[in-house]
Design a protein around this nucleic acid. Structure first.
Lengths: 339, 339
DNA sequence: AAAAACAACTAAAACGTTTTCGTAAATTAT
DNA sequence: ATAATTTACGAAAACGTTTTAGTTGTTTTT
């Protein structure tokens, strides 16, 4: 087993001091050219690579960024992650991922763990547990220590930090407008409880679009799931109870299940009923018919978040100015709506 | 901004030495109980948390594990990742992810970067670039440095390390057997080029099952994609050319596209033609009809990989004994096959 | 009362770097 | 020949820990 070689080894072997080796490898002007050559040749021969940990300790910079997301097996989050990873890597940063599993406690634990020197900054989407509890002290503590934080997608108003979100409200608004333009009259919304920030925004857009078009908001046409978990029974009950000609869903899963159910009841999509779902993921693309979707541009979101974060890390001017970047959603039309 | 407090600060503030503080916080017997109390109270008050980087440098242990996967926006890999993360986190480890993007070069770069002290061990699936190039020197170098490595799913015979795979051959074998049991005669295989280890194995299982059942292997019934990228044209050509009554696909995407194409041609699934696809992901579950799938148990695979790795990290006996854990695939029957 | 034992603490090295400040020898200037 | 400058290098501190090996001063033993 070849152990990793250090500056000290090189110094001892070549009969020079550690400082000389360090400087020689950095091509410092201070060192004579023959010594430099000797050291560099030796280092190359033994494949010397500086120890990241030692460097981190020295500069108090780890070149790691911490990403905390509620779930990794989730198309949107992985898409964002890809954007983060892409940008970060290009800038020489590595990414440490922790999964909060939608739990407040795990989010706190992971964050505290990473905050003790392991990372230079955080990018995260709040867990539903955290949004439900509405407790952001762990975030406050981190930012108070001067660790930059960028929130994406699932954010909270009262946290002072940079944010990257999409205009969820507008996405919903546009979707409902499209339904109305297509002549739909009874437009349902399938969503989760309001404590999820994005669901709240989407619900607001849905409502506003209805009202702006002179359609009354009818609470009976809104199906609210208590969590992000699917519950077939609620879907069946809803469609047995209500007769609608368009459905806006805050996620793909709810939409796909609903489509299947109404299809099993003999309804034709999009003739009898149209569907639009948030998050343009694999399911939307491969459903039959394809699900018209509101794309959230996850990769771009990730890149922007990483860009903002790394900028903060590398130029940490003390001024506390925070930006919120709002991305515009895009409607991807597929077979589940008429065109 | 509250800066992070260190042992030195506490020591200075309390008029004791750094060693005393360190020991007091570890409840050492060496320290008097009043001093201990004083130190602990102070540490608690100022929320002292030891610096991970300093500890890493000291014990030459980072409590980080490096995961390198070809793609993060990929259901199977994220499932494995979830298993890794779950187990690692429970053992107090963090996970640094790098995405090789199916590229040999990126794999090498990421690996070298992490190997310089950032991690205690690697878990990875080979990029297709690496499998194509068949060059594993970067892996060899890492293991020679005594860094444990566990390969999963995409492995290579001649790398000496621990491995976790599923029995891909058997998965394909069982699928083809099921087709034959259902009376299918012309069974197609949709796959990628053989340099991807899992595709090779699956193709072997396909062939073996045919031969064992007295059916000749017909190369014309095998559609090989040059990469993992989908190419609609190849699918169309294939199904125009060949008439088959069953299709085994090495992944979901190929299967779903094929299903859609034959459906558009008026064929009924599973009456006229059956489908089975590898990787039981979201698409299989939500396709119509649902795609019968060979489940790869990703999460379990991840957990096992992490378990093996962490065991190696924590008890690094010098003996070079490597295990290969082979998980059994499971056939998840859905509407794309008769039952 | 001297020796031994013990309690409670500290100094210093170590992990692997980087960087500041010295310093000796060699060179140049006077 | 002496002073000033430059060249080429090394010592040591620093980052924040942990740990070994002292070092006090007090208590126990004989």
């Amino acid at each position: 087993m070849k152990r990793k070689i250090t500056l000290k080894h090189i110094a001892r072997e070549l009969g020079v001091s550690i400082s000389t080796v360090s400087k020689a490898l950095k091509n410092s002007e201070e060192i004579g050219s023959d010594t430099k050559e000797k050291v560099q040749a030796f280092a190359k021969l033994y494949n010397y690579k500086p120890n990241n940990i030692a460097i981190s300790l020295k500069n108090k910079r780890t070149k790691n960024i911490g990403v905390i997301i509620p779930d990794i097996v989730h198309h949107f989050f992985t898409t964002v992650f890809r954007g983060i990873e892409k940008y970060a890597n290009a800038k020489g940063y590595n990414v440490i991922v922790c999964v909060s599993d939608e739990s407040f406690d795990k989010e706190v634990i992971n964050m505290e763990l990473l905050a003790n020197g392991s990372i230079d900054g955080f990018i995260m989407a709040l867990s539903s547990g955290t949004q439900l509890k509405n407790d952001y002290n762990h975030l406050k503590e981190v930012t108070e220590q001067g660790i930059p934080l960028v929130l994406f997608d699932r954010v909270a108003e009262d946290i002072k930090c940079d944010k990257v979100i999409i205009n969820d409200k507008k996405g919903a608004y546009n979707a409902v407008n499209k339904f109305i333009k297509d002549g739909r009259k009874k437009i349902a919304l399938i969503t989760s409880e309001d404590y999820i920030s994005v669901s709240r925004e989407r619900a607001a857009g849905y409502k506003e679009a209805l009202l702006d078009n002179g359609i009354a908001y009818d609470e009976d046409l809104v199906l609210k799931f208590p969590s992000m978990e699917i519950n077939e029974k609620l879907i069946e009950d809803f469609f047995e109870r209500e007769t609608v000609d368009a459905v806006l869903s805050v996620n793909e899963i709810f939409a796909i299940h609903s489509m299947r159910y109404v299809q099993s009841k003999g309804l034709k999509i999009p003739k009898d009923i149209s569907f639009i779902g948030f998050t343009d993921g694999l399911l939307s693309k491969y459903a039959s018919p394809g699900l018209t979707a509101i794309a959230q541009h996850g990769e771009e979101m990730g890149e922007i978040a990483a860009e903002i974060l790394i900028d903060k890390i590398e130029n940490d001017m003390e001024e506390e100015t925070y930006v919120t970047r709002v991305l515009e959603p895009t409607l991807i039309e597929r077979g589940s709506t008429v065109n």
